[in-house]
Write a protein that binds this DNA or RNA. Structure first.
Lengths: 284, 284
DNA sequence: TAAATAGTGTCTCTAAGACAATATCTC
DNA sequence: GAGATATTGTCTTAGAGACACTATTTA
């Protein structure tokens, strides 16, 4: 005998009668915060180059926010998970497969997109800059890397500053964290932004916070390095992600169990050559 | 002069012509993992009672998963953020206002709901059990609290076990974390479940992980305690959330800066009375 | 006084912070 | 040798783990 519900329907009958069109539905997009770390030019070939944290933005060629810069993204299609949408967008935007991707959460303010009811499931990705050639011409949109800095402001809020490579464009956003235990992606409030489309300043702020939180606990920095690297490179990537310097001795003690000496040395440095390491595969 | 896009439209013209109906859209629901901590009966009035971590579930009265237990939840309505949806659901389900709520992330497997394309933005809530009278009769659905336990299994996966208060129903789910750096809500995979509807075992597993992560860093336990509490009560709540015992001396050292002695004592215990504390308001 | 929890003292151990000393390469 | 980074050693400090000891209540 079959199970029947309160209306006397079997499961097959119920599913046939169910009409999802009866409810108003939002559009759901995935917006991508694509992080990378890049070396700026050093004064001398013997010195270590400085590094910058960068994000990939796309200039809007249509309304709304025409001319402003936005996170790359696109709508979720039927049959996809949001993670698959993010991976697809990233592939279309950068040509990269199998990069590190992490879901950051939903931004759903009703007015965030003046066109319609669109909520965004933000993701962050970590890509190696040398693997990406952002394609300015692809579908008539201009893509560019922006350096990202975050300064605390006196009243407890933060100011994000973005600068396009070469210094042609400068964007900014101010976000604040309301008092109380508000947590999660919608915990930050966007107090204002310049040159950034939609609520993307808010999404950026949340992504940066997550990035910094996770550097300490996890293995994110490896995704921004080549297979073989020196400990100084690893430390520099961590410092760039965190936005503050780390002590060398303590850093090496801490990451020692995560890496493995491969017995080779970096070549052609103007100083003592550094040992090369690779990431150690973890047993759980 | 007005800005015009590639098609020669002004922003107002563009918005008027934009048709969101042209795209297929998913339904978006908020599912709530409502946690509480409850004391079980002690053998003697002089002994401290044991505590249990519990979640609120609702028995499905319709297809699909008729008779199984599901997380409370409902669809996002136009004009709401997902956080507002969660707060509304919680109010409807428990009558509570202003409880701690946190967005956990999106679960979006295309087949997760056999009726239609429905993605779920999961939230967790922390409520004081003594404030909630789950209303079994409300809109013909039966609500009940289930104790929640989580055991690691030998191959790296986890088994969740739920037991209804009184022991009438037992539910389970097995989840695994695939190798690699998969992070975020969709990082867990549901290997199987019994008595739990949809992918709610997976959502529960993720919620429990988040809960445990955040106990250590934040102030979540206060939301499960009355205004005035003893340090032993606070420690017990933390232990229950974490599922493991803590050392008394170390615990007190650690939480000392978060609480404030109010100079009163717990009454009527069969032993030395404990000092009462309240949460100290943080400067950031 | 027995039984129970409350509250504190202290020793150890580990890890991070801080800084210095030594090593090794290229020009 | 000068100048740069690489690598290691070690002293100090902060905090967690572990355990024991004392305090205070009620039946």
């Amino acid at each position: 005998m079959e199970w029947r519900d309160g209306a006397g329907l079997s499961e097959a009958e119920f599913l046939a009668a169910y009409r999802v069109e009866d409810y108003t539905r939002p559009s759901v997009a995935c917006d991508m915060v694509v992080f990378t770390v890049v070396q700026t030019q050093a004064d001398s070939y013997r010195q270590l180059p400085e590094q910058q944290l960068q994000v990939l933005l796309i200039q809007r060629g249509g309304h709304p926010f025409l001319g402003d810069w936005a996170l790359p993204g696109g709508f979720v299609r039927p049959g996809e998970t949001v993670g698959q949408t993010a991976a697809r967008e990233l592939r279309e935007e950068t040509g990269l497969e199998r990069v590190y991707l992490e879901q950051l959460g939903v931004f759903s303010d009703p007015g965030r997109d003046p066109r319609a009811w669109v909520m965004s499931c933000a993701h962050m990705a970590l890509v190696r800059r040398d693997r990406v050639a952002p394609r300015p011409g692809a579908d008539a949109r201009q893509a560019a890397w922006f350096s990202l800095r975050c300064q605390p402001v006196e009243d407890g809020s933060f100011r994000l500053e973005l600068e396009r490579e070469g210094g042609e464009d400068r964007l900014w956003a101010t976000v604040e964290r309301p008092a109380g235990d508000t947590a999660g992606p919608e915990g930050y409030r966007l107090a204002g932004s310049g040159g950034l489309a939609f609520d993307h300043g808010r999404i950026l702020a949340w992504a940066l916070r997550r990035l910094r939180r996770e550097v300490e606990t996890s293995r994110l920095p490896f995704h921004l390095l080549p297979e073989r690297f020196t400990l100084t490179q690893l430390q520099q990537v961590c410092e760039t992600m965190l936005g503050r310097p780390l002590l060398k001795a303590a850093f090496r003690r801490k990451i020692a169990p995560l890496v493995e000496d491969i017995g080779e040395y970096a070549q052609r440095a103007g100083h003592r050559p550094a040992r090369l390491y690779r990431r150690k595969e973890q047993e759980r």
